[in-house]
Design a protein around this nucleic acid. Structure first.
Length: 674
RNA sequence: GCGCCCGUAGCUCAGGUGGAUAGAGCACCGGCCUUCUAAGCCGGGGGUCGAAGGUUCGAGUCCUUCCGGGCGCGCCA
C-alpha cells in the first residue's frame, strides 16, 4: 500500500508551500502525485511547480529547486530532486519500504466505521436460465462489493427477484396453456430436467405463439392478474417456477464466486403494500399530484426535470413572443395510472425508499438456503423469523443495472429530491454499464445468422434476445471454458487426480470469464466472441493466475530444496545488504516490482471513485506481466549471491501477495497448479 | 426533436482530478524449453488519437460546433 505515504508527502508539501510562499488554505495548490517514467528520475514526482509558476511569475525549475532545497526530512523519503523541466521528484527509502510491507497483514485494513452501503445486482427474471449478459451484471456488481469492502465499507448485497412480472407469467402460460401441464407435472419436470434450460426454450416458444395470434395475449393478462392476487393454481405455479429458477441462478452465480446477503422479492413489496406507504410520503411532500386535465387526467404524475443542472438561462432575447407555449409545458411521468394501478416506477421508488431507510416499513425475513458461512436470507410477507439481521436502511445505494434503465434511475433520484431527501439522492448511484452482444461468428455458431442485406447484417454485432432464445447460456459458457481448461491442466499435470483437475479447471474457467467481463470499460458494448473468451493467453485471467502459481512454485521448491520458508526469508533481511534492491547492481527492476505492487490501494481508491473496474484489471495484468519478465531474467533458486537471492525472494513474496489480493477483488482464486 | 454513450495501431481495447517519449492483447514476422511450469519470455513492423475551432506553459484527456454509429425518452416492466 502506498496511499499513506502519498498522504504524508502531500501534507508535508502543503505545509512547505504555505510557508515558502505565504499561501493559505485557499491558495495552496493541490499537489498531484505521479510516477516518473524511469526510476533514475525518481519514484514519485509532482508537477506542482508548473501550477505555481504562473502565480509566482517564476520559472518552474527555479520553484522546484527552492522546494527541494527547503524540503527537509520526511520519513520514508531518501532524497528530493528538482528535474530540469520543472518536475519535483522524490526517491524513497527502498529497504524500509519493502520491509514495512512484509510485516504480517494485521490491523492494516481500514476500520469499518464507514456507513453501510447496499449493492443491488443480478436481478434476473426468474423464468429462464441466466445468459452472458447477466454475467456481466453480476460480475460488475460482485466486484463492486469486494472493492467497497476492501475500502472498509460495510456492504449488504441484494438480489431483486421480479417474481410477479410479465416474464414469469409468460412461462406459466407456456406450461399451463401451451403444454397443458398441471402443477404436479411441472414439479416432476423440474426434478428430472435442467429446469432453467427447459424454461429458456419454453419462453421462446410462448413468445412465438403470441406472435402468431395476438389475441392469445389475454392469457398473459389473466395470469398476471392471478399472480397478483394469489390463491390460484396459476399463482402457485408462478411461485414454484420462480423459486426453482432462482435456485438455478444461485447455483450458476456460486460457480462465478458471486454471493448475496438478501433476496428481495417483488411479491413481498406488493403484499406488504410498500407502495401505499411510499405514496403517502410522495403525496404529502407534493412530489406527485393528481392530474385533472389533458390526456393524463386521472393519473398521479411526477413532473420531470429534463435538465436539473442546466441553469444557463440562454438569453434568447429575440425568442418568438407568444407561440411555443407548449415548450414551457412541464413533462410528466405517470406514477399511478387512471385505473389506480401503480406503475413499475412507483414500485421502484418504494423499494429505493426502503433501501435508504425512508419508508417507515420493513419486510419480514425467512431463511432461503443454508450455506457454510451462514443462512442466505430472503424477504417474506408473513411468518418470518423473529431473529434476523437488520436489512435495508443504508446510507449509500448502488443499483447495478444496464444503461437502458438510465432514464428510470434518474426519475428515482428526482423522486427522492422532490420528497425532501436531496442527500439521499446524492447517495443513490445508478451503476450503469453497456450491453453484451454477440459477435457475428458466435451468433452463427449458435445457429443465428442475420439475413444478408438486412440491417442486422451491417451492424458490428448481433443483439441477444431472451424472447427469441438467442444468446449464450451462462452455464454452457462456463462448461465450455472449464472443459478447455481441464484439457490444458491434464496435459501439463498428468499426475493429478480427476477431482483435483476438475477443481483447478473450474478456477481457471471462472478467471477467464470474470476477467473478460471486467477488462472493458462499463460504457463499452461487449461483442462477445466465444473463441476470444476461450483464449487463456495474453491479457486474460488465467495469465495472471499463472504468474501467481509460478511464484508460489518458487517458494515450494525453496522449502523442499533448501529448507528455507517465506517467514525465514523475511526475518533474515535485516542483516542483508540491499544493493540489489537499491540499484547497486545496476538497474532498478526489482525495486520497480515492489513499487508497482504497492499501488494496489491507490488503484482501488481510483476504482471506487470512478466505478471503473477496467483499471483494476489492467493493473493486475501489468503486475503479472512485470513478474513474468522478471521471472525469466532473474532466477531465485539458482541465484548464487545470497543477498541478491533473498531480496529477490522478498520482493516476489510481496508482489505475489498483492497480486493474490487483486485477483480476489476480481473474484478470482489461485489454483495450486496449472 | 431532446438526452446519454461510443469513435485511439489491421482487429479488440487501455490511456487517475489535463503533465515527462501515445500503450496492451490478438493477428503477422524472427528468435528462446539439459537451468524456479513455453498458459511464458525477447525482438520487429505498424498511429493525421473521427474533423475543425477554442482554453492552457502544456490537450488523446477540458469547452464549442460538425460528421459517423449505438441506446433511451409509454397510463410496458
Amino acid at each position: 500500500m502506498i496511499l499513506p505515504l502519498h498522504d504524508r508527502l502531500r501534507a508535508h508539501l502543503g505545509r512547505l508551500l504555505a510557508q515558502l510562499y505565504s499561501l493559505d488554505a485557499q491558495t495552496t495548490p493541490a499537489v498531484p502525485l505521479e510516477y516518473p517514467p524511469t526510476r533514475e528520475l525518481g519514484d514519485l514526482g509532482t508537477p506542482v511547480a508548473f501550477e505555481l509558476a504562473r502565480r509566482l511569475r517564476k520559472a518552474p525549475r527555479a520553484i522546484a529547486q527552492a522546494i527541494a532545497g527547503a524540503f527537509g526530512a520526511l520519513e520514508g523519503v531518501a532524497r528530493v530532486a528538482a528535474a530540469p523541466n520543472g518536475y519535483l521528484n522524490f526517491f524513497l527509502e527502498r529497504r524500509g519500504f519493502l520491509l514495512d510491507r512484509l510485516l504480517p497483514d494485521t490491523s492494516r485494513r481500514p476500520p469499518a466505521t464507514a456507513a453501510k452501503a447496499i449493492v443491488e445486482h443480478t436481478a434476473i427474471n426468474p423464468n429462464k436460465a441466466a445468459h452472458i449478459g447477466h454475467l456481466r451484471n453480476s460480475t460488475l456488481g460482485d466486484t463492486l462489493v469486494r472493492v467497497l469492502r476492501f475500502r472498509g465499507v460495510p456492504v449488504e448485497v441484494q438480489n431483486y427477484i421480479d417474481d410477479t412480472g410479465v416474464q414469469v407469467a409468460d412461462v406459466v402460460v407456456g406450461f399451463r396453456v401451451l403444454e397443458q401441464k398441471t402443477l404436479d407435472q411441472i414439479r416432476e419436470l423440474a426434478g428430472s430436467t435442467r429446469f432453467d434450460y427447459y424454461c429458456w426454450d419454453l419462453y421462446a416458444r410462448v413468445t412465438e405463439w403470441y406472435e402468431q395470434d395476438t389475441a392469445r395475449l389475454t392469457h398473459r393478462a389473466e395470469t398476471l392478474h392471478a399472480i397478483e392476487h394469489g390463491g390460484t393454481d396459476a399463482a402457485d405455479a408462478a411461485a414454484f417456477i420462480a423459486d426453482r429458477i432462482v435456485r438455478c441462478h444461485l447455483q450458476t452465480m456460486a460457480r462465478m464466486n458471486v454471493d448475496y446477503d438478501l433476496l428481495s422479492w417483488e411479491g413481498d413489496i406488493l403484499r406488504l403494500q410498500f407502495w401505499a406507504q411510499a405514496f403517502e410520503v410522495l403525496k404529502a411532500s407534493g412530489a406527485v399530484y393528481l392530474q385533472t386535465e389533458g390526456r393524463l387526467a386521472g393519473c398521479w404524475v411526477m413532473p420531470i426535470q429534463d435538465e436539473p443542472e442546466a441553469h444557463s438561462p440562454k438569453p434568447e432575447a429575440r425568442s418568438e413572443p407568444a407561440d411555443e407555449e407548449d415548450q414551457a409545458e412541464e413533462r410528466e411521468k405517470v406514477i399511478v395510472r387512471s385505473n389506480g394501478v401503480v406503475t413499475y416506477v412507483g414500485k421502484d421508488i418504494a423499494y429505493q425508499f426502503w433501501k435508504l431507510g425512508l419508508l417507515g416499513r420493513d419486510f419480514q425475513y425467512r431463511v432461503f438456503a443454508g450455506r457454510p458461512e451462514g443462512p442466505l436470507w430472503a424477504t417474506c410477507s408473513s411468518g418470518g423469523e423473529t431473529d434476523h439481521p437488520a436489512f435495508g436502511g443504508a446510507a449509500y445505494v448502488y443499483n447495478v443495472i444496464d444503461v437502458r434503465q438510465s432514464y428510470l434511475q434518474k426519475l428515482l433520484k428526482q423522486a427522492l429530491i422532490a420528497s425532501g431527501h436531496p442527500e439521499a439522492a446524492e447517495r443513490s448511484h445508478h451503476f450503469s454499464y453497456e450491453m453484451v452482444a454477440l459477435s457475428h461468428a458466435t451468433a452463427r455458431e449458435l445457429g443465428y445468422a442475420p439475413p444478408a442485406g438486412s440491417e442486422d447484417a451491417t451492424r458490428p454485432f448481433v443483439e441477444v434476445s431472451g424472447r427469441k432464445g438467442l444468446g449464450v447460456k451462462a452455464d454452457d459458457l462456463l462448461d465450455t471454458l472449464v472443459r478447455n481448461a481441464g484439457r490444458e491442466v491434464a496435459s501439463r499435470n498428468p499426475e493429478l487426480g480427476e477431482a483435483e483437475r476438475e477443481r483447478i479447471a473450474q478456477m481457471i474457467g471462472i478467471a477467464a470469464v470474470r476477467y473478460f467481463l471486467i477488462k472493458f470499460s462499463r460504457t463499452k458494448i461487449i461483442a462477445f466472441d466465444l473463441e476470444e473468451a476461450l483464449s487463456f493467453e495474453g491479457e486474460s485471467g488465467p495469465y495472471i493466475q499463472y504468474a501467481v502459481v509460478r511464484a508460489n512454485n518458487i517458494f515450494q521448491k525453496l522449502w523442499q530444496r533448501d529448507g528455507l520458508n517465506e517467514a525465514g526469508v523475511v526475518a533474515s533481511l535485516a542483516n542483508v545488504p540491499a544493493a540489489e534492491l537499491e540499484g547497486g547492481n545496476g538497474g532498478h527492476e526489482l525495486w520497480q516490482l515492489v513499487l508497482d505492487a504497492s499501488r494496489l490501494d491507490e488503484v482501488v481508491e481510483q476504482v471506487v471513485r470512478s466505478l471503473e473496474f477496467s483499471v483494476l484489471a489492467k493493473y493486475a495484468f501489468s503486475l503479472a506481466q512485470a513478474f513474468n519478465a522478471f521471472y525469466h531474467r532473474s532466477p531465485i533458486l539458482n541465484e548464487e549471491r545470497d543477498d541478491v537471492r533473498r531480496w529477490r525472494a522478498a520482493a516476489v513474496i510481496y508482489l505475489r501477495d498483492q497480486l493474490t489480493r487483486a485477483l480476489d477483488l476480481m473474484g478470482i482464486g489461485v489454483p495450486p497448479r496449472m
